[in-house]
Nucleic acid binder design. Structure first.
Lengths: 344, 344
DNA sequence: CTGAAAGCGCTTACAG
DNA sequence: CTGAAAGCGCTTACAG
């Protein structure tokens, strides 16, 4: 911070007429300081509006009360909700959270980890799907491993191959498969998928789980029925337009995230396609706003805030054991008005 | 951070066979270091996976590259979108953002400012409406003022009375008034307002602006037609249920935020009240998802990301002048399908 | 261009 | 219970 000087512990000590050591102890609540002196120190600190310098504190050996959280985009409801869970637990433990958005730039993710290492953050949380890219994985590991070696805690939400870290893993495959079975049970036989980029593990897992469930029922999902677009609301909108242009004949569409499904639903409406009358639509995640859509969205419900809480708890309750811990979280299919039996 | 020791500059210097000073200069890109030595230092740092200790750096006089952002709740789309703007500008300037959620606890807001002071954050951004509470205002000022005196930058989004800080001010009053006029022009004469807690300045300003516009047209807004509830989606839901139970006779409802309007719309639907056929509904903010509602929501559009960008820019481009700067941002009424002329 | 040394603001053995 | 002093890991005048 540029600018004029701060009030220091020395100022407080001088004002209270005690030594630096005593001032430090009084402020940190050491039991060994006498009533009289403690009162003087507290009064002086108050009077001078003293704010201890965390940098000096950490450098002198105190624990650093900050944790870093890296996600793709804070404004995405999926991340925002997970972040909410993270911050609640952090707040309960008097931890300050540094939140970074990578905007899906792999290089930025690495740069942030590096900055958090430099900060000596006590823990780093990586929220969101990894990139399927060997070089990137190695570069990330090159930051993470020295950090862990120096005692840093790392936890991730969603899979991160090639990293020995504690993780919270939503079972994307099983959730998507369960959704597939539920949609089959409704009577659908012609499906399409609106997907995000295939270099995200989450995308791949959800497509695979869905495809497998269909295959088990003897229903094929052709490559032509998978439309790839951005992992955003606008991506979903675009993908749905593309799908409709292809005249795929699908009676039921699975968007791999709710956020994409929201865009898809609006695109369908704009094109005069009624959901679910003309076409059923389902998403994944159960972000809170999907209850308020018309029709309300069928989806696979993930306990998003809990995901964040679990991750933060893994990081806080460090386990010095050898193996990395995994918290598996299951999704639950929630059928709402956006899906119905196909018309004949 | 607990645990084993970190690689330090001294390790790098020893490995590169240079002095501490030279290692430091080489790593910080000082032009004065010779090619040969610079290369050795860089190689050593790379080999040892050296991450400089920010705390030591800041203590020794470097600028601290972190800014603190305090908002009510990251998972609220209004804040999340503003935060997105903040983080974009921060990212462009190689600043790390520490984001805190107060969950609307005034005491927590003060505690966070205090922690950010201790961190020597180069700037603090306060996003969101202030609390109308004298004691709280004083306590906040008691943290903010010493921070500024020591050179810290502060910027706020939305009004913060009693603080001499740079600010970005959405014109809530004028926006609500413009909305009121637009709804009057549609032919409505009986209005109701779904409001958040009155101790938030944003709530008061929006109600007042709306009420004034109606008054100018000779239309009264009775206190009984203002329903107060939580400043959330569920608050909006509850407020609408309450309003319908009161059988107010309003043909048009203004929810003071889009988030509340979303809950209100679902409540109306559940009660069999059709929007806009039976009742028009409007919000405020223009968070992105309101385009995807059915019907799409009429609202006052605020350039949310820009709000965040402006705030961050104010904080970065410090102006050592006497007066605090104000960036005023106007809202624009956007009429969508959720409002229509009243039926007779 | 390079290095030895002081200093940033704390905490914490070590004495007393 | 209290204090003098070392040390945390850097940066930056100050010499050379």
């Amino acid at each position: 911070m540029a600018g004029r000087s701060h009030v220091t512990l020395e100022d407080v000590a001088r004002t209270a007429q005690v030594s630096l050591a005593t001032a430090s102890r009084a402020l940190n609540g050491a039991a060994s300081v006498g009533q009289e002196l403690r009162a003087r120190v507290l009064a002086a600190a108050e009077e001078l509006a003293y704010a201890p310098n965390v940098h000096a504190r950490v450098l002198a050996g105190s624990a650093q009360p900050t944790v870093g959280v890296i996600c793709h985009d804070v404004s995405d409801p999926y991340f925002a909700t997970i972040a909410r869970g993270v911050m609640r637990v952090a707040g309960q433990n008097d931890l300050l959270v540094m939140l970074a958005s990578t905007f899906r730039d792999p290089a930025k993710e690495i740069a942030y980890v590096s900055m958090l290492r430099a900060q000596r953050a006590s823990a780093i949380l990586l929220i969101g799907s990894a990139f399927e890219d060997r070089a990137w994985e190695r570069a990330l590991a090159a930051e993470i491993e020295p950090y862990q070696r120096a005692g840093g805690q790392v936890a991730v939400v969603s899979r991160h191959r090639g990293l020995r870290v504690d993780s919270v893993q939503p079972d994307n495959r099983a959730g998507a498969a369960a959704l597939g079975r539920a949609l089959l049970a409704l009577g659908h036989r012609r499906f399409a998928v609106l997907a995000g980029p295939r270099d995200l593990t989450t995308v791949v897992d959800r497509i695979d789980g869905f495809r497998d469930a269909l295959a088990d029922a003897g229903v094929a999902l052709a490559e032509a029925d998978v439309v790839e677009a951005g992992f955003t609301r606008d991506g979903g909108h675009e993908a749905m337009r593309e799908l409709l242009a292809r005249k795929s004949g699908a009676t039921c569409v699975f968007a791999v995230t709710d956020v994409m499904a929201i865009g898809a639903m609006t695109a369908a409406r704009s094109a005069g396609v009624r959901v679910p009358d003309d076409m059923s639509l389902a998403g994944f995640d159960d972000i809170s706003v999907v209850r308020d859509l018309t029709p309300a969205l069928t989806t696979v419900s993930l306990p998003l805030e809990e995901l964040g809480e679990h991750a933060m708890n893994l990081a806080i309750r460090a386990d010095r054991g050898k193996r990395s811990r995994v918290v598996r979280v299951n999704g639950e299919v929630v059928l709402r008005a956006s899906t119905a039996a196909p018309r004949h």
